[in-house]
Amino acid sequence: MQHAPTTEDLLATCWTTAGDTAPGQGDGRSALTLRDRAEAAGAAGFRGFGLVYADLVEAERTYGLAGMRSLFEDNGLVHLELEFLTDWWTDGDRRTASDAVRRDLLRAAEALGARHLKVGPDHEDRPWDADAWAGEFAALAAQADGVGARLGIEFLPWSNLKTVHDGLRLVEAAGHPAGGLIIDVWHTERAHTPPADLAGVPGARIVGVELSDADSRVEGTLFEDTVRRRRLCGEGSFDLPGIIAALRATGWSGPWGVEILSDTHRTRPVREAAEVAYRTAAGVLGPAAVR
């Protein structure tokens, strides 16, 4: 079912159309074809699409980068997000592996015209040197800028960057204009960050926003809750209208990412998954967003 588009475009993040896979399940690779996923996202009304590294590798093998770009263009997907780089701050074998992923992501970002690259913090919350991280982030942001993309770091409440404030301190210390934040509202809510704090984030430092919903009570660990029990927008406890208003106050106008991760969502056929994710997110964005 094709819905009326919004003036503020929506982006289907990688997990929203990935089917029966999730972070922490092997390499996270989807069993679905990129064609099926792109067609489902475009038919639902999305104007953006997210792809995790394992799926990028598989899709390039199947279609080539030129074929992938054509698939996105044919389905009206003009905002591309590539993820998820970790260990960009370290050294040794972990850094060697990270740098190989980095090269692939940068090469693909340039060929595909990606809007931004998403990177992560230290999920294990180990001791870290803030100045060294700022330098590494600035260097990586410069590389992203060199291929025409921005760089966004996603803070996570169980990591060394737990809140939007922690993330903002890093990107401001790094100082590169191409660097900024991915603000996932699941993480801001679980870190108990009020919407008013989001309104204070400089608009130039917001690279991406991700919408979802959840129950008020966390079940299991934060990681388990975020990958198994997210709800569709408007079907949980989050004050999404207040959060959206706060983000709009920064000047943010999209694309709004929609990241639905749950045991329930993974069982939906991809067309249904894309359609319900788009419809519910467009609903909380409100009638003012509809053309």
Score class of each variant (00 low, 15 high):
residue 219 E to L: 15
residue 144 A to F: 07
residue 203 G to C: 08
residue 151 L to W: 14
residue 213 D to L: 00
residue 165 H to E: 14
residue 206 I to L: 01
residue 147 V to R: 12
residue 182 I to Q: 09
residue 145 D to N: 04
residue 195 P to A: 08
residue 165 H to L: 11
residue 205 R to F: 09
residue 191 A to T: 02
residue 130 A to Y: 10
residue 154 E to L: 04
residue 155 F to W: 02
residue 134 A to Y: 12
residue 171 V to K: 08
residue 165 H to W: 04
residue 139 A to T: 12
residue 219 E to I: 14
residue 142 A to H: 01
residue 191 A to E: 03
residue 143 Q to F: 07
residue 145 D to H: 09
residue 147 V to P: 03
residue 213 D to T: 13
residue 174 A to E: 08
residue 171 V to T: 12
residue 144 A to P: 00
residue 201 V to C: 00
residue 167 G to P: 10
residue 197 D to C: 05
residue 201 V to M: 03
residue 202 P to E: 04
residue 138 A to C: 12
residue 205 R to W: 02
residue 145 D to P: 00
residue 163 T to G: 11
residue 197 D to R: 09
residue 151 L to G: 05
residue 158 W to F: 15
residue 153 I to A: 08
residue 157 P to R: 13
residue 189 E to R: 06
residue 128 W to Q: 13
residue 136 E to Y: 08
residue 206 I to Y: 00
residue 199 A to W: 01
residue 189 E to K: 10
residue 200 G to I: 06
residue 134 A to W: 11
residue 138 A to Y: 04
residue 207 V to Q: 04
residue 189 E to S: 07
residue 185 V to I: 03
residue 142 A to C: 05
residue 186 W to V: 12
residue 138 A to T: 03
residue 173 A to I: 04
residue 158 W to H: 12
residue 127 P to H: 14
residue 218 V to R: 01
residue 178 A to I: 06
residue 194 P to L: 04
residue 204 A to Q: 03
residue 137 F to H: 10
residue 122 D to L: 06
residue 204 A to T: 11
residue 181 L to C: 11
residue 186 W to N: 13
residue 135 G to L: 13
residue 184 D to S: 10
residue 191 A to K: 07
residue 134 A to M: 15
residue 144 A to S: 07
residue 208 G to H: 10
residue 201 V to K: 07
residue 124 E to I: 07
residue 170 L to A: 08
residue 185 V to H: 09
residue 157 P to V: 04
residue 199 A to S: 13
residue 192 H to T: 05
residue 166 D to H: 12
residue 177 P to H: 14
residue 141 A to E: 09
residue 170 L to T: 04
residue 214 A to N: 14
residue 177 P to M: 15
residue 198 L to I: 01
residue 124 E to D: 12
residue 202 P to W: 01
residue 128 W to H: 14
residue 186 W to T: 11
residue 137 F to Q: 06
residue 208 G to N: 15
residue 214 A to Y: 06
residue 177 P to E: 14
residue 170 L to F: 01
residue 173 A to F: 02
residue 191 A to V: 01
residue 158 W to Y: 15
residue 218 V to P: 00
residue 138 A to G: 10
residue 126 R to E: 12
residue 151 L to V: 05
residue 194 P to D: 12
residue 208 G to P: 01
residue 192 H to F: 03
residue 192 H to A: 12
residue 191 A to M: 07
residue 157 P to E: 08
residue 217 R to Q: 15
residue 199 A to V: 11
residue 142 A to R: 05
residue 158 W to R: 10
residue 218 V to K: 02
residue 219 E to W: 06
residue 184 D to T: 07
residue 171 V to C: 09
residue 174 A to W: 04
residue 174 A to G: 14
residue 206 I to W: 00
residue 182 I to N: 10
residue 204 A to H: 07
residue 139 A to V: 04
residue 218 V to N: 00
